[in-house]
Amino acid sequence: MRKILLCLLMSSSLLSCAQNNPAIPDLYKEVKFKNKNIHYRLGIQVAACNFSLFINDVPVVRNFEEASGTFNTSAPVNDLILKSGKQHFKLILYPGFKNGLPLPALAENILAKITVEGLKYEGEGVKTLIDPFTILEIGGEGKKFTEKGKTTAVYEGTFEAKVPYDLTAWSGSKDLRKEDPATLEKEVLAFYQQYISIVKEKDEKALARLVYEKEKYYAQALFLGQDGSQAQWDAYLDLTRNSTLVMMPLEKYKMNFYANGRLVTLERIDYPNIGEPALRSESQENGRTVVGFYFCQLHKREGSNQLELIH
């Protein structure tokens, strides 16, 4: 079985944007500051433990697997940087798993290193605007790891980022932690079921209406060009046109809040799916089962009681 992460995000707004706004493949025409594009990426290296990494209290990368070897990746974070200034990061370390069972405490040989760099895409080329710099280093030649024997260790700090845009996104949204959790969870589940119904009914017009505002935000944050906007829409169309794709039941999840309570989502709590989106599909590819999972981070605009997907 193979897993794929599909960053298909939805808005629950039923506004008829398809009639009054350009189609999603044309959103690149609304992107500003293309000549000033800068793409921030994190270099992430963590060894001998599991972890969650957040930028501005929104998850970037998580890893909950067997506690062996070193996890290495590079992750884009422009969609978590809403405006220039200080950006907050938080790394939470957890004991890993052994034979499918969680270890009781953090080991002494843990290593972690997080770097930031700024890139500019110029056609087919990439130019380095900001050389990689380290914002956190634990173990090895960095800060000594002193949390051996604990069940978690938390490291926080800030770094400066400069972007040409200033995006509202969820920055002025309601703090959903203040709402009745049972009522809110019912609303979130209703949203998820709406998503599932659209995919089952293969209603591409409804899908276009639902994702428009999210895609507009995403296009600007990533400075998408024509190919990028088309690729976003093509990924959505795969949901409605893949004849083998089946949406899976929502199960083994927990409602979690991010962005200081302004975002809410459902995430799996079962190993080895811990922290993954609860919204999932299965499809067939070359005789193999492919599991897709889809981020749905919802917010409520100030003055509104309607959930919309913004990230």
Rank of each mutant, 00 (worst) to 15 (best):
P22I: 11
G149A: 07
Y94T: 13
Q226K: 14
F51L: 06
A182L: 12
S281V: 02
E117I: 08
Q19S: 13
A235Y: 10
E267V: 09
N21C: 12
F51T: 04
E215R: 10
L14G: 09
V188H: 03
L222F: 08
D180T: 10
K162I: 14
V291M: 09
I274M: 00
N305Y: 14
I114E: 01
V46Y: 04
L106M: 04
A48E: 06
Y40R: 04
F33L: 06
G228F: 06
R280F: 02
F223R: 01
L93P: 00
C49M: 07
A231T: 15
N305Q: 14
K3N: 08
K120D: 01
T128P: 00
E124S: 12
F295A: 15
R177Q: 13
C49A: 13
P95T: 12
G303I: 14
V61A: 12
P249E: 14
K86H: 10
V58P: 00
L111Q: 12
K36T: 00
I114F: 07
N260A: 11
E201T: 15
G142W: 05
F133R: 10
Q193P: 05
A278W: 01
I110P: 01
K162L: 12
S243V: 15
N99G: 13
K98L: 14
L15A: 14
I4S: 06
D26V: 08
D166C: 14
Q19V: 13
Q87M: 06
V199Q: 04
F191P: 00
F257R: 02
P132F: 05
Q87K: 04
V199G: 03
N99P: 03
S304M: 09
E141I: 13
Q87A: 06
H311Y: 15
A169L: 10
V60H: 03
W233D: 09
T134F: 01
G225W: 07
H39C: 03
L184S: 04
T168M: 10
P104Q: 03
K148I: 12
P76A: 02
I135M: 05
L9S: 09
Y165M: 07
F33I: 04
L80A: 00
I138R: 02
V31E: 04
T168W: 03
Q19G: 06
Q230T: 15
R268S: 11
Y94G: 01
A161Y: 05
Y94F: 15
I24S: 07
